[in-house]
């Protein structure tokens, strides 16, 4: 096990000094801020650009958009709400992505914990199997999956969008890799000594320790589910869609009114940003808590 030897020298007791979190993490200088600002500007540009286009009218030329927003965003937002079932679709997407996210995070943590810390027959092979399923291209899957959903009588329902995404191999693999190092075995052994069942051990020892990773997985899963297009398009009825399917309707016509389309996509991003804020805090809270209590 090479993992054992990768660790740095063990801290000698007695030499420990209480250090503040801020001394532990490097204090970034202006170079760091400069690089990050450049990075964020590059990352946020298309986002801002979408907003710019959305703030003008249908005549805006996408090849040369002014960098100062125009005053038409609310007008376009109203047009979006008038031309597609925006709120209904938004609600559907919240239900779908919310359920999928909760489920993926919970089940991935459970399975990840089992694979990382518990010994059971076949664990090695099963883990490889999980990873292998990641490598299956999904594009052709829509046909048999639709056949299955039609068979179950689920097509046209949100359940048909939720069910195939309740667990992901990506999530299991991620939580497994994180838990391997982030949850000390001693802690688990201690909990077992105290007579905790595996489930209690998971709940009280593992889960708190993996909050940053779980929050991260939550952010990714929510984003992915929120942006999913092809499968909901196939399996849902257009009159009761998720938000991405509804937004697609804005692109009808022989020419696209980008001020309308991008107003729609900008509005549809707000819930994702909220999730970023809420779960993003969790990611940070994870280390801050460790720093304070530790």
């Amino acid at each position: 096990m090479t993992a054992l030897t990768t660790a740095p020298p063990v801290r000698r007791p007695g030499r420990s000094k209480r250090l503040k979190a801020s001394t532990l993490l490097e204090r970034p200088n202006f170079v760091v801020y400069g690089i990050l600002i450049a990075f964020i500007l590059g990352s946020a540009f298309p986002f801002y650009w979408s907003f710019l286009v959305a703030s003008y009218d249908a005549n805006v030329f996408t090849g040369d958009v002014p960098l100062i927003p125009g005053g038409n965003f609310l007008v376009n937002a109203n047009r979006v709400v008038d031309s597609i079932p925006f709120w209904k679709a938004l609600g559907n997407s919240v239900v779908v992505s919310g359920t999928v996210t909760l489920s993926v995070v919970l089940f991935s943590s459970l399975a990840g914990f089992a694979f990382a810390k518990l010994r059971f027959r076949g664990s090695k092979g099963l883990m490889l199997f999980v990873i292998a399923t990641l490598a299956v291209p999904t594009q052709l899957g829509v046909i048999p999956l639709f056949m299955a959903m039609a068979e179950f009588g689920w097509s046209g329902t949100l359940g048909a969008v939720i069910a195939p995404n309740l667990v992901t191999a990506f999530g299991v693999f991620w939580m497994r890799q994180y838990i391997v190092d982030a949850v000390p075995n001693e802690l688990i052994e201690a909990a077992r000594m105290d007579g905790c069942s595996l489930l209690r051990t998971f709940w009280h020892v593992c889960l708190p320790a993996v909050r940053p990773a779980a929050a991260m997985l939550g952010v990714f899963t929510f984003m992915q589910s929120w942006n999913d297009f092809l499968w909901p398009l196939i399996v849902l009825n257009p009159e009761d869609p998720t938000i991405q399917v509804a937004l697609e309707k804005l692109q009808s016509g022989y020419y696209v009114d980008y001020s309308l389309v991008l107003a729609g996509t900008t509005m549809a991003t707000v819930p994702v940003l909220l999730v970023f804020l809420v779960l993003g805090r969790q990611i940070v809270a994870g280390i801050m808590q460790g720093a304070v209590k530790g």
């Binding site: 329902t157 359940g159 939720i162 849902l236």
Partner: peptide, 10 residues
């Protein structure tokens, strides 16, 4: 939750 939403579209 997935099944409950399953009554509308047949």
């Amino acid at each position: 939750a997935s099944a409950a939403c399953g009554s509308s579209g047949s």
